[in-house]
């Protein structure tokens, strides 16, 4: 548990709805995340948690309701949306590092091209970030030359380089070999301790217990529970959550 005091709602979802054809994948989602809060979203696969995460920076469009970041409602496709996205860091399950750019360029591209930061400054900041996530010595390499865990840490550095107000993590450790999961989680825990606002979709219950301020449990496109990790793991209220947790604990 972190000790910082959360402020106003930084990310706010109100009555958000989305369908994939017949499938109602997000049903009247309401979620407020305050500044400095770490919210972990868990739930069975197909529950809509990834879609929720992707909707927050409009990689998925929504059909009803509103999503706002720091008081501003997500605009339609265009210049304003690009500006808003720069304030929202995103880390993907499959890393998605730019395959034709070096590790350093992956981190500096956003600041240089989107924010107009001079190259020398961007390089210096990027090196500091890469050192911070423990891959500084990999800077001149191409993404394919790094392990999955290293790539994901670079992806975190790339998102941080934009100095985002909030970081979204969409199953950041699901594509990793077991021995690489901790190196990524350690970086995320450190980030949480430093007060970054984070929304994390994950299956890592250890991370949820350790770093989350709140656990949001989703099933069938709905938020079923929204509680502190302590409450959720020791005393889940819904049958759906009890069922989900019992399945986890049997392994």
């Amino acid at each position: 548990m972190t000790t910082h005091v959360p402020g106003d709602a930084l990310v706010s979802l109100n009555a958000v709805n989305k369908h994939y054809g017949q499938l109602h994948v997000l049903k009247d989602i309401n979620l407020q995340v305050r500044k400095g809060e770490v919210v972990v979203v868990i739930g069975p696969s197909g529950s809509g948690k990834s879609t929720l995460c992707r909707a927050i920076n409009r990689l998925e469009t929504i059909e009803g309701g509103t999503i706002s970041i720091d008081g501003k409602v997500l605009p339609e496709e265009g210049k304003e949306l690009a500006q808003l996205r720069a304030d929202v860091g995103m880390v993907f399950q499959s890393f998605n590092l730019f395959a034709h750019k070096t590790i350093l360029e992956n981190v500096t591209l956003g600041p240089i091209k989107v924010k107009g930061v001079p190259k020398a400054t961007a390089d210096k900041d990027a090196m500091a970030l890469l050192e911070r996530v423990g891959v500084g010595h990999q800077a001149p390499k191409l993404p394919a030359q790094l392990s999955g865990g290293q790539q994901q840490r670079v992806a975190i550095a790339r998102a941080l380089a934009m100095k985002p107000k909030v970081m979204l993590f969409d199953e950041p450790t699901s594509a990793l070999d077991p021995e690489m999961i901790n190196e990524v989680l350690d970086v995320m825990i450190q980030l949480a301790k430093e007060g970054m606002t984070m929304i994390v979709v994950t299956h890592e219950m250890g991370f949820a217990r350790k770093a989350a301020d709140r656990v949001v449990f989703m099933a069938d496109g709905q938020i079923v529970e929204d509680a502190t990790p302590e409450e959720f793991f020791t005393n889940p209220k819904s049958d759906r959550a009890k069922d989900f947790l019992s399945k986890l604990l049997t392994h």
């Binding site: 720069a86 998605n96 956003g110 998102a159």
Partner: peptide, 14 residues
């Protein structure tokens, strides 16, 4: 891969 474009959009590129 579509993830390349998503990553680029998510750091604010137009």
């Amino acid at each position: 891969p579509v993830g390349q474009a998503e990553a680029a959009r998510s750091i604010g590129m137009n």
